[in-house]
Design a binder for these strands. Structure first.
Lengths: 199, 199
DNA sequence: GTCTATATGTTGATAGAC
DNA sequence: GTCTATCAACATATAGAC
C-alpha cells in the first residue's frame, strides 16, 4: 500500500489529537479540525474515510504512547528503586507535555471499554510479572495477594491524578496556574520518596 | 415561584444524571433521556428550557454532591487520624455507588473550568485550613511549603484514581469485574494505613 | 491532492391540539 | 402537564470539477 502525502496526513493527525483530547469523540467537530489543519473538510475524508476512523487512529496512537513508555520502564533491566524512579520521572514529564492525554483516555474508555480489547492484543498490554516479582523480592509483604497490585495502583494514581484533576485541585489548593505547575514538578521527588519508603 | 410536578422533574434529573455522567454534555441525547424517563422529548423542554440548562442543573448537583461530603469530613471535629479514615471511607463508598461521577466531573471541567468559578462561590468550596493545621500539629514536616498540599493530593488520588481508571487498570491487573470490585473494597484499609504511616 | 457545492441524516427546540 | 408533528440548524459525508 502506497503511503499518501505524509506531511498533510501527519498534520491532520496532530491537529485531530489536540481537538479529540480536549473535546472527545462526540464533542469534536470535523470543521474545526479542518480549519486548524489549514485544509478543507473534504480532505479529512480523503485521508480518513470517516470521523470514526480518524478518531480510532488518534485513540490507538494515544493509547500506544501512554502504555508504550510505561511498559518499557516496567519491563526494563533496572533494579526496583531505580525502576520506580524512572516510572515516576517518565510519567510526570510525559503528562507535563500532554496534560489532556490522560483525561481523554479515561473518558473514552469509560464509554467504550471495548476499544481496549479490540485494538490491543494482550501482547501489547503491559506485563506486570517482572515488576511484581521485584516487589516480592524486596519485601515479603508484597507476596500477599493483591499487595503488589495495590502498590502499582498507588504509583500510577499518585502520578496521574493531579494532572487529571488539575482544574478542581488547583482551585481547592488555591493555586494559580504557575503555582500548580510548580507543585506538579515538585511531586516527582515527593512521590518517589513516598513509594521507596513502602519497600 | 411554584414548584412544578416534583415527581416527573426528579425522574428527569435522575435519568439525565446517569446519561450525562456516562456520555458527557456533547455525547448525551435528549431523546435518550426522554425515553429512559418514560416521557416525551417536548416534556424535557417544558421542565428545563434547554439541554444546556438541564446539564447545568445536573452538573451543579454532581459537584455539590462530590464536594459537599468531603467538606463535611475535612471541616469536622475529629482528630486527624480519624478524619483521614473518615475521608477514605466516605469517598470509597460514595464512588462505589456512582463510579462514573468522578470521570464526569473531570471531563467536563477539563473543557470548561469556568463552570467551577461561575457556579461555586468560594464559600461553597472546601476550606483546607483546618486540615492543614492538623497536619502541621501532627508532624513538623507538614509545616514545609506545599507539604500539606501534597498529602491532600495523595489522599484524593489514591481514593479516586482507581475508580476513574477502572477500565484500563482492571485490564492491566488482569482482573475481572468482580475481582476489581473486591480490589477497590480492599483499598480503603490499605490507603488509610499508608496515609497514617506518613504522619 | 485539493477545492466547491450539495446530499443526507441527526438533533435541539417549538407550535399547537388535547 | 402531556402529547404529535414539524422546524431550523448543524454535522458528517459524498459528488464532481480542477
Amino acid at each position: 500500500m502506497k503511503t499518501l502525502d505524509a506531511s498533510t496526513r501527519d498534520r491532520i493527525l496532530a491537529v485531530a489529537s489536540t481537538v479529540f483530547y480536549q473535546k472527545g469523540l462526540s464533542g469534536a467537530r470535523m470543521q474545526e479540525i479542518a480549519d486548524l489543519a489549514g485544509i478543507n473538510k473534504a480532505m479529512l475524508h480523503y485521508y480518513f474515510k470517516s470521523k470514526e476512523q480518524l478518531f480510532d487512529t488518534v485513540f490507538q496512537q494515544a493509547l500506544g504512547q501512554f502504555l508504550g513508555g510505561i511498559g518499557q520502564v516496567l519491563n526494563g533491566e533496572a533494579a526496583l528503586p531505580a525502576k520506580i524512579e524512572q516510572y515516576v520521572a517518565y510519567t510526570t514529564s510525559a503528562l507535563a507535555e500532554t496534560p489532556s492525554l490522560a483525561a481523554f483516555i479515561v473518558h473514552e474508555l469509560q464509554q467504550h471499554p471495548e476499544r481496549l480489547s479490540n485494538q490491543f492484543s494482550d501482547s501489547r498490554l503491559i506485563n506486570l510479572d517482572d515488576f511484581r516479582q521485584q516487589l516480592a523480592d524486596a519485601n515479603t509483604r508484597y507476596q500477599e495477594p493483591n499487595a503488589a497490585e495495590h502498590f502499582f495502583a498507588n504509583m500510577v494514581a499518585l502520578c496521574v491524578y493531579p494532572v487529571l484533576a488539575q482544574p478542581l485541585l488547583s482551585r481547592l489548593l488555591r493555586q494559580n496556574e504557575a503555582q500548580y505547575r510548580r507543585f506538579l514538578r515538585e511531586r516527582a521527588a515527593h512521590i518517589t520518596q513516598l513509594l521507596l519508603g513502602q519497600l
